[in-house]
Design a protein around this nucleic acid. Structure first.
Lengths: 244, 244
DNA sequence: TTTATAGCATTGTGATCACAAATTAGAATA
DNA sequence: TATTCTAATTTGTGATCACAATGCTATAAA
């Protein structure tokens, strides 16, 4: 299992627990790890081909960011379930902080930033047309966060990052049932127009509309999921005894 | 150092890394660990009388919550410095999310909740009069978060908790130079009146005013600190060589 | 067929060790 | 006195083991 790799220098090499973090983060966002599923340190470690130690570090970080849930009784890990309650709270938070970040970024937007965002939005459009969900999601993330990073507000930025991490699993549910079809209006072009014109409020409103539209799609998907029976029936042979 | 304690059951006993987390969190909020100071896993472990392992877990969690900073080059830990930039961002975030939580709580506020808050505010008043900073800070935290918890919005609540954790060190700076004197108007009574009357907007505005007042005091303290030379001059014997 | 029980595998937690990088302290030199 | 080089200490990271608790599976009993 544990092939002896040559140890890399600490200063330049990315730490293994950071790689594991990125891998798990990606797996959560893209829905490779289904919501509600239980995970364990050793199973993740075996799956990723690393020792449990860096997984432990990455998982602690993710659970602090609420991307993973720890059962307080079990101390067992699981991916948070997708409830409309959670989604509503995440929407509320996103609807405030992300337009705020966009407005801050609009004030100090450079031509280079606008050009970068234009290129990203082109890639996003291609992803929509070709139905490439992965490309769409990556480009969408890139569009939002290269804009937000320009705000130069790292405290707020990290909050927004945490929200996206929690929303990731919801996104996959939407695309799992719709694909990239029916995405509605592209508010990114509106935001870009606002950036070029230097109109802060236009940017703010465009991003708010973009978020609102996306979250609406997720809500529909979640609501129709909640109506259905539990996603996977764990074939129980006997009921849990009433043992206290 | 490490006396052999009898191992406790996992299910009921609080895990050591959680105890360490609470201890460090408290130390950060009360300013026992000065902002800007560097810490290390082993030194913290020795100080707390535990092995480095649970400290490692707790520190990962705290750094994910931005209560500790990791130097990306060194991978070395330090307490974030208090800059007016950071404070401004934290104020912006608090001014949105906390009134929001308060308003949500106001809708479903029970008489028991109001009574509990009244008792907490009494304890807060006593702390102010006797000049007991610790009691004041504990009561103040309790007032805000028993109210916020009543909102039943755990996603938003955890964001607010993260903000308080980052603000903690700033608070101590304020009280270190002023004590509990000059705290200004008590907006808690206004919030309580709004809760009794069932007036959501009164509660929202009262909490916003409360936050604004507190953050103003912190800003003044930080600004006068930034004018001064660096808090502790690290007596360097030689300059860092220009080695790339 | 259904329920209870015993045995086994898996889990999180904590401790300890090894390693390499970085920092610090001390000695030697100008 | 000030600077440079070297040795020792401290640091984060990763690996591995032990332990107790929990969960699952197969066997026995109704």
């Amino acid at each position: 299992m544990s092939q002896t790799k040559p140890r890399r220098a600490l200063s330049e090499a990315v730490a293994v627990h950071d790689q594991v973090y990125d891998a798990l983060r990606l797996a959560l966002i893209t829905g490779k790890i289904a919501p509600g599923r239980g995970v364990s340190l050793r199973s993740l470690a075996a799956e990723l081909g690393v020792s449990p130690m860096p997984v432990r570090d990455a998982v602690r970080r993710l659970s602090a960011e609420r991307a993973l849930t720890i059962n307080p009784a079990n101390k067992r890990l699981s991916v948070p379930s997708l409830t409309s309650e959670r989604l509503a709270q995440l929407q509320k938070a996103r609807l405030w902080i992300e337009p705020e970040l966009a407005a801050l970024a609009a004030v100090k937007a450079s031509p280079i930033l606008i050009q970068t965002l234009e290129r990203i939005d082109e890639a996003l459009g291609i992803g929509v047309q070709t139905g490439d969900v992965d490309q769409y999601m990556a480009a969408n993330h890139a569009f939002h966060f290269t804009l937000y990073e320009a705000a130069g507000a790292d405290v707020l930025l990290s909050i927004a990052g945490g929200l996206w991490l929690q929303i990731g699993p919801f996104m996959r549910v939407v695309f799992g049932r719709l694909g990239t079809a029916g995405l509605g209006a592209d508010f990114h072009v509106e935001a870009l127009a606002g950036l070029r014109a230097g109109n802060t409020e236009t940017v703010r409103n465009a991003m708010a509309a973009d978020i609102l539209q996306g979250m609406d799609g997720m809500r529909e998907a979640v609501l129709s999921d909640e109506a259905k029976p539990p996603p996977l029936a764990p074939k129980r042979r006997y009921k849990k005894p009433t043992k206290a």
